[in-house]
Design a protein around this nucleic acid. Structure first.
Lengths: 141, 141
DNA sequence: CCAAGAATGTAATGATATAACGTTTATTGT
DNA sequence: ACAATAAACGTTATATCATTACATTCTTGG
């Protein structure tokens, strides 16, 4: 099996692979400096923030990683590349995020924009709240 | 007329008034350091970033100002305080933003979250693209 | 007035992100 | 294969965004 099973962009470089693997292995979004601090990343020889940001930029271009604006953090896109808008559910208790696809909503949102004469390129939705586990734990207490 | 016509929260302090006035006078979102650099702000005696951030925090609490996450910038809420979600249309050419209300969309978005067992507190939507003026200018060239 | 809480001032620092420049590695055309 | 080009990378410094810590002043209710 190729090292880019769901992916038809250019093959990933060593640095890009290392950063993508780091995000895949994390259970929540990581900042660039979080990534930089990981042993596996240091082992791969990456030691400057710019190295991480460059890899992240490419991964984002290819749709393999998303940036969570309100956290200044990055998360692996579990659904593989896709072209419709995505939303993120961010748990304020545990910090984990869930990605939701917004096929239908996107049309609606972009429509609200078009009413204003605005030509939309990109839609980002971030919602904070409690994930099922944390909501349950809070209810139990 | 009182100095808080559409507003029933606590009266604004001098610093808060100065920062709010700065944002009202700007034609696009300002960063905290943009605000700090304004002559009117220096005249008001504010000279440290923290002073600006503290005022912004209070204004945001009261719904008079919104933070645009993807710009790390702040904008006056032209609609007065409100409790439904808002979206921002951010022009990538001129940097101006338009605020749109998402009464109907919010339900939809929160519904997508609820499907996942997620209890949503807060919804933020940011869309990038071209404003009517910049789209027209681009088409003309 | 006086105590309590909120807001502010000041300095230092922490956290996030990019610029500038040179070198190395990969790709492409011939 | 080889040179030309482009992409990625390394290194250092720096720019940009935000908070901690602690002392002081202002406001407000008793």
């Amino acid at each position: 099996m190729a090292d880019h099973a769901h992916h038809d962009g250019p093959p990933l470089t060593r640095n890009q692979q290392a950063v993508l693997a780091a995000l895949k292995g994390a259970d929540k979004p990581l900042t660039a400096y979080d990534v930089l601090g990981l042993p596996a990343i240091r082992k791969a020889g990456m030691k400057a923030p710019l190295t991480i940001y460059r890899a992240l930029d490419k991964l984002i271009d290819q749709g393999l990683v998303h940036r969570i604006e309100s956290l200044n953090a990055f998360v692996h896109c579990g659904h593989g590349p896709h072209d419709h808008a995505t939303g993120f559910l961010i748990c304020t208790d545990c910090g984990r995020t869930l990605e939701v696809h917004l096929e239908s909503c996107e049309t609606h949102l972009a429509g609200r924009a078009r009413e204003q004469g605005f030509a939309v390129d990109n839609v980002r939705v971030e919602m904070t709240g409690r994930c099922p586990e944390c909501a349950a734990r809070a209810a139990a207490s």
